[in-house]
Simulated assay, not measured.
Amino acid sequence: MTTIYLVLLQGGILAYALLAGVFLAFSDFIMRALSRTSGIGGPEAMQLINREVFRWIFMTLFMGMAVVSLLLSGLAALSLNTPADTLILLAGLVYLVGCFGVTVIRNVPMNERLAAMDPATDTARDYWTGTYLPRWTFWNTVRTLACALSSVLLLTALVWRTAAY
């Protein structure tokens, strides 16, 4: 196993776990707290959060892991000689589908719809409570589980690989 490959695996484990933690915080308590705000507080705060998420730290981690996942999955798919290769392939695919794909297909469209609304309107409050909170939180939980599973799969693969050496 090359040093670069080892660093990619170790960095991937850490990055997947960090992303899982961010998403877990939203599913576990941030969204619940926002749902308990009065008036326009929840939708307005989420609009602000959705604008701030584009800061370079989170986006570098989130987008970077899509690239790393493609790279790791591609390298693993080329060999598939050991169960560890299969786990690495699965880790990348789980992230790409369960986190990145869900974000693009589910969470971002809801964020964009909320961003276009005036939080002071009944339409925004109805969308916030009836659609956004339950659906966004559900799909965010899917992202949390996908990132956690990707981290566990990579960790297991790394342990398996290093035990073989």
Rank of each mutant, 00 (worst) to 15 (best):
F26Y: 14
R55V: 13
G41E: 03
I40R: 11
R55D: 13
Y16H: 12
R32E: 12
S27I: 02
I57F: 06
L19Q: 14
I40G: 03
D28Y: 04
I49A: 15
Y16P: 00
A20Y: 00
M31N: 07
F29E: 01
N50H: 08
Q47Y: 04
A15F: 05
W56F: 13
Q47I: 05
L24T: 13
F29G: 11
F23T: 12
F26C: 11
G42I: 06
I40Y: 00
L48I: 10
Y16A: 15
E44S: 12
Y16F: 13
M46F: 10
G42W: 03
A25L: 09
S35T: 04
T37C: 01
M31S: 08
A17I: 05
R32P: 01
M46G: 07
T37V: 05
A25P: 05
A15M: 08
V22K: 09
A25H: 00
G41C: 02
A33F: 02
R36E: 12
R36D: 09
F26S: 09
F29P: 06
I49T: 15
F29K: 09
A25D: 09
I40N: 06
L18A: 15
T37G: 05
F26Q: 09
L19I: 14
S38N: 09
W56N: 13
W56D: 14
A33Q: 07
A17Q: 02
A15W: 00
A25C: 12
G42L: 06
Q47K: 15
L48N: 14
F29M: 12
A25E: 07
M46C: 08
R32I: 10
T37P: 03
E44D: 07
M31I: 08
N50L: 09
S35P: 04
I40K: 08
L34D: 01
W56I: 15
T37E: 02
S27F: 00
I57N: 07
F23E: 12
I57R: 08
M31T: 06
L19W: 02
G42K: 02
I49E: 03
R32H: 10
D28C: 01
A25T: 14
M31G: 02
S35Y: 01
R32L: 10
N50R: 05
E44G: 02
